[in-house]
Design a protein around this nucleic acid. Structure first.
Lengths: 113, 113
DNA sequence: TTATAATATTAGAGAAATAGAATATAATAG
DNA sequence: CTATTATATTCTATTTCTCTAATATTATAA
């Protein structure tokens, strides 16, 4: 239950274009910050801020190489999410069967919209 | 690419405890608003607001049954997400191999933290 | 040492999300 | 009709997020 809350926190973090871009880069392999700057056109300090947030949430981690920080993806849930985000899906799920029963009522069959 | 932006918008919506609760209920079957109120302890108007947001994003849809609105899950991406959120994962991904090469440097092997 | 390169931190303004309160709508029952 | 039930909408204060700008830190190179 509380575990789901942790997952929600991570979802929130991942649900951001720049952070998705960072994470997709990292999913290909270790990258230092300068490497990331070549791929993502946002400011250095903003990249650092995103990296910091992702690290505090346990999504990524880094090695130190001199003055470089070499970041990598750590969280398997997030790796799975990244796959899901790029996956193809049918336009919509099959609608529910004709006359579904809810607690309050039994839908008679007419569809709004 | 732009498709990814749409997915990110949906991720943002899903990344909320009440909306996850609503979606998990709907993933089990059609539910009208009163049914949902029994499961989720937030105000009626707030539930309506969440349902409205989810519907505008194409995540859910509804049938009309008299004065009831019977909501159901429509978006297959979201159904997949719900599964992922409840899935078990190893604590962490295997770290990258010892001396990964980044554009700027080759990590010598020492790990921070 | 001093300069520079790589990265992080802090502060703050502006934007967006959230929830509560009050009110509106719409359908049915009486 | 009128009351009631089911649900939606609007307004709004508050909180949270996001980015920019400026500055700090740290390691290496010169």
């Amino acid at each position: 239950m509380n575990d789901v809350m942790a997952r929600i926190e991570i979802l929130k973090l991942v649900a951001h274009p720049a952070r998705i871009a960072i994470l997709e880069e990292l999913s290909k392999g270790v990258k230092c910050v300068t490497d990331l700057q070549d791929f993502i056109e946002i400011s250095q300090s903003n990249i650092s801020q995103h990296l910091s947030a992702l690290r505090h949430a346990g999504v990524i981690d880094y090695f130190v190489d001199g003055r470089l920080r070499c970041y990598f993806l750590k969280n398997p849930f997030v790796l799975d999410l990244l796959g899901t985000i790029r996956k193809d899906y049918p336009a919509a799920l099959e609608g529910p069967e004709c006359c579904p029963v809810t607690k309050k009522g039994k839908y008679p069959g007419k569809r709004k919209n």
